[in-house]
Design a protein around this nucleic acid. Structure first.
Lengths: 256, 256
DNA sequence: GTCGCGCCTTGATTTGCATCAAGACGGCTC
DNA sequence: GAGCCGTCTTGATGCAAATCAAGGCGCGAC
């Protein structure tokens, strides 16, 4: 495994608080693998033996029931996934497959569980990461239960705009059918909803979206910091916990 | 605080792995309080200063947006809540209110965060509890996105039957309007859905439900271990992590 | 180039669910 | 007891979303 990759992993919130020894223990048994697009990494119900760390590419997490299928999340580097199943040594509740060719680091789950009880700093980092993932899901569930399809889409666009720098034009990060599934609607309905957002200043050309009147769109979307995480995504902030900690600077002051 | 209450807390998965010193640190600063029914313990967006432990009574967790409201969970003793916000020192994403008169132990969040980095056993327990909560939410989200209202209700009834001993007759644990909100439907629709389940051998008299032909109901509900957690609730198994660990007996053997 | 195959879009139709409205029932106060 | 309020039920209606169906478009294979 290349040093540059090791450093990227070491910089993850999940690993930056652990001891060198812990990190060495975890990475010596680990291996980095490259998967082509469309590879199924993990099937719902499978025993989970590894923690996965996405270093490059894109991964989709999905759930199925009764021949239906839904996208639960789409991951970008650098992210870890199925940590919860690893912590509890339980079966995975979702499937994972690559969307693009992806570089993925696989770390022994047994090693992670072993090391947690020896390195409190690492255990704390795992707890924080899990808490961040949990809060992300709470947001998703509220989004799903409280908003209608058009509102979910409008808020998604607003969030994307901010995450991609806040300019008027940005790119949809996935295929539209994936986006539809993520938003809990059919591709047909996503298409229609995008069309009807033209009235609110949204122009769509293929994967490129331009929001001409943000204020108008916001009046429809009613974004809410308790549902939408508008944190800008920077290189410095990876991992679910960090994303949930924002905006914590002033909290730190309050607590001090 | 009474010794008998202290012991119940000590026996929680979250606390039974920590040192005596950790436990003493956490509980000396804590206080037990009794709240009447309908008390709001915590409002969405509030800063969270305490970990709450429900010792007696019933608590509802809810989320709101744009004058809409949805129930995210209903808790029974002994449960902890808002652990994620405590771990990350973040604002709460949901409101909490008592449904019945409730005895609730409040433990300093700052103390919890402090103690985590000193007691690896405790930090591991927190990580496991968070992982269990996370997996519970994944199940909820799949339930919500993949199934229709009638299917959610049918599966809810099957789960309740098992949790209450598996007899043909059992009781709905909450008011029907709360149940409706939990299942993501209106009270009107819950009423109609219950009525239409008569065709599948479900008899309802007030809060009491009888399932006369479980096989027929299951053919409609198609329960799935990756969505429905059919673990029987016993006194020995409290806490989200433990509930997610079942059925682990044979996993232990495989791993050995 | 031409074919074929996904993806996306658009339209027509049906279904599921929310909403609106009214009434039944039980528990409560006075 | 009468009156009231909240819960639950039932029916009528309207809207949102899924489904079904057809066609356009981009792109790679050959």
């Amino acid at each position: 495994m290349r040093d540059v990759d090791l450093e990227r992993v070491r910089a993850l919130p999940l690993f930056c608080g652990c001891t060198d020894e812990t990190f060495r223990t975890l990475t010596t048994g680990a291996f980095l693998q490259r998967f082509p697009a469309g590879t199924t990494l993990l099937l719902e119900g499978d025993q989970v033996d590894f923690l996965y760390v996405l270093l490059d590419g894109m991964v989709e997490l999905e759930g199925t029931w009764n021949d239906r299928e839904t996208t639960l999340a789409v991951l970008r580097p650098v992210s870890t996934f199925i940590l919860a199943a690893v912590v509890l040594d339980a079966d995975g509740l979702m499937s994972a497959q690559t969307v693009e060719r992806s570089d993925i680091l696989m770390i022994s789950g047994a090693a992670i569980r072993r090391v947690m009880s020896q390195d409190a700093g690492f255990a704390v980092a795992v707890a924080q990461e899990m808490a961040g993932c949990y809060r992300g899901l709470v947001r998703t569930l509220k989004n799903q239960k409280l908003r209608g399809g058009l509102e979910r889409l409008a808020n998604y666009l607003i969030t994307q705009r901010l995450r991609q720098g806040g300019g008027a034009t940005f790119e949809l990060p996935h295929e539209k059918r994936v986006l539809a599934s993520l938003l809990g609607m059919t591709p047909e309905n996503l298409s229609r909803s995008l069309a009807s957002l033209a009235d609110y200043g949204v122009e769509v050309h293929g994967p490129s979206v331009t929001i001409t009147r943000p204020a108008v769109l916001e009046r429809l979307a009613k974004p809410d910091p308790l549902i939408d995480n508008h944190q800008p995504v920077t290189d410095a902030l990876t991992g679910q916990a960090q994303q949930e900690r924002w905006p914590l600077p002033d909290r730190g002051i309050r607590a001090a």
